[in-house]
């Protein structure tokens, strides 16, 4: 009987060892230069306006781990469910000041800073931990590609836009490290572990 417990304990230890998380990859087109250097993709430079009408640039996010998404406030399809999942992330990581949520609107015509302010206020989220960004539509749509997301203007889609509802994890050096389908709570569970791993590894 005693051996049984020892063996069981050993089995538990071994399997928990197996579950240790592998490092997250850098996602996107990794290129090698003629001189043999590796170039990892980064989020391009940007400058947008947040819900408090302040300018936010990519430099403000360097040094932070960010969770990004593309949405619009009048979206009648998947956005509320994605926002609900982001609230789970917001709550779970509330004691990590280096983590920030960044929601880019894809509908800047309707989503002015004032409207984003109201939206954030309704959600009762802290602007220091969750920014909502607006700006020129073309730039917002273009940057979605760096965040491995799809944004299309489509009059036939609900609310006028087609988009993927992805949540994207970006490290302190602006590399995409993980993403998930933000409409699926189970995928978000898995994504949370990636976020935790990145935070535990200093955000790099």
């Amino acid at each position: 009987m005693r051996y049984f417990f020892i063996i069981a304990l050993a089995a538990v230890l071994i399997t928990s060892g197996c579950q240790e998380k592998k490092p997250l990859p850098i996602i996107g087109n990794i290129e090698t230069t003629a001189t043999g250097d590796t170039i990892y993709p980064v989020i391009r430079d940007f400058s947008f306006i947040n819900q408090d009408s302040q300018v936010v640039t990519n430099k403000d996010l360097l040094g932070k781990v960010t969770i990004a998404d593309f949405f619009f406030t009048s979206c009648p399809s998947i956005c509320p469910i994605v926002k609900k999942q982001e609230l789970r992330l917001y709550d779970r990581f509330d004691n990590y000041p280096d983590l920030m949520l960044v929601s880019f609107t894809i509908d800047p015509k309707r989503d002015t800073p004032e409207r984003l302010h109201l939206y954030a206020q309704n959600l009762e989220v802290d602007p220091k931990r969750w920014v909502f960004l607006t700006g020129p539509k073309d730039e917002l749509h273009a940057i979605s590609k760096d965040y491995v997301s799809i944004v299309l203007e489509d009059p036939d889609a609900p609310g006028g836009f087609d988009h993927s509802g992805r949540l994207i994890l970006v490290d302190k050096n602006a590399h995409v490290r993980s993403f998930c389908n933000g409409t699926d709570p189970k995928e978000v569970d898995r994504f949370m572990e990636d976020v935790q791993w990145l935070l535990d590894n200093g955000g790099e």
Binding site: C79, P80, I81, K83, L87, L123, E124
Partner: peptide, 16 residues
Amino acid sequence: CVNCHMADGSGLPGII
């Protein structure tokens, strides 16, 4: 309905 009101009917505070 799930996209807006959520599977457990809890909605999205302040929005839905």
